[in-house]
């Protein structure tokens, strides 16, 4: 890799990642709090790249000298994949590959839900936690507003699994958070994003006494599809 090539690589990474930072597209791959570290890294790479380009072209012959191992060219691969395959956020294909999230045991009490009129907006992970571990049954008979994507399952007639991914670090560790919805009306395609107003369906047998994956169910009150994929499609465990 020549010094020119290296400078070009640094600038390209800076430009493409910088674009993801500016338009929020990075949120499909990593957590929101990575915005500032990514922006700082982008600025440094651009400064290094421009500095190298300018100083090596000023020195004439300098630019063509060997300045890095050939393996550095592999850095172009994620950039090429980014512009050609145009990967999107995790969706139904990913959800089918990994076991759904099981709420971990909670010992502290849940705060009561606000008394204001329903629906109450809630993260999907909080819905699952309250359904599984809230002894006060705060979800009972309340209308809760959740946002997520559609994952169809032939075994669920007239419904789908409302799915959102729990991402701890980057999309590669995403675990599906799923609520099985019934009575969702007209069928929707996999990966359609929806805002769903739902009422929790208390289980006949406590989840803790069932074998395998806990199926947490709810009845749909209203489903409204959302156009496109949100910029912040994941929930974080923080």
């Amino acid at each position: 890799m020549s010094r020119f090539g290296r400078a070009g690589m640094l600038i390209f990474i800076g430009v493409l990642i910088g674009r993801l930072v500016l338009d929020g597209g990075f949120g499909w791959f990593v957590q929101q709090h990575m915005r500032i570290p990514l922006a700082a890294a982008t600025v440094l790479l651009l400064v290094f790249g421009v500095y190298e380009l300018v100083s090596s072209s000023r020195d004439g012959d300098e630019g063509a000298r060997v300045a890095g191992p050939g393996v550095g060219w592999l850095l172009a691969l994620p950039l090429l994949v980014l512009v050609s395959v145009a990967p999107t956020a995790l969706g139904a294909v990913a959800a089918d590959r990994v076991d759904a999230f099981v709420p971990t045991e909670r010992t502290e009490r849940f705060a009561p839900l606000p008394d204001t009129s329903d629906p109450v907006e809630m993260r999907v992970i909080e819905f699952l936690d309250r359904a599984a571990w809230d002894e006060a049954r705060s979800l009972q008979d309340r209308v809760i507003r959740l946002e997520g994507l559609v994952v169809n399952d032939p075994e669920i007639a007239g419904g789908f699994k409302l799915t959102r991914f729990l991402v701890s670090c980057c999309a590669a560790d995403g675990i599906p958070l799923q609520v099985t919805l019934h009575g969702t009306g007209r069928p929707l395609d996999d990966d359609t994003w929806v805002v769903a107003d739902v009422i929790w369906r208390p289980p006949e047998v406590p989840y803790q006494e069932t074998e395998g994956i806990w199926v947490i169910e709810a009845d749909a009150v209203a489903i409204s599809p959302v156009v496109g994929i949100p910029k912040d499609p994941y929930e974080s465990p923080y």
Partner: peptide, 29 residues
């Protein structure tokens, strides 16, 4: 290229790119 629209190929791309992007700031540091 129709292959780029295949669900598994796009999932592979998402996993691959996200590991790279997550590592980038730490690598620069």
């Amino acid at each position: 290229i129709a292959w780029f629209d295949d669900g598994e190929v796009r999932l592979w791309a998402t996993l691959f790119v996200s590991v790279c992007i997550q590592a980038l700031p730490f690598l620069v540091l």
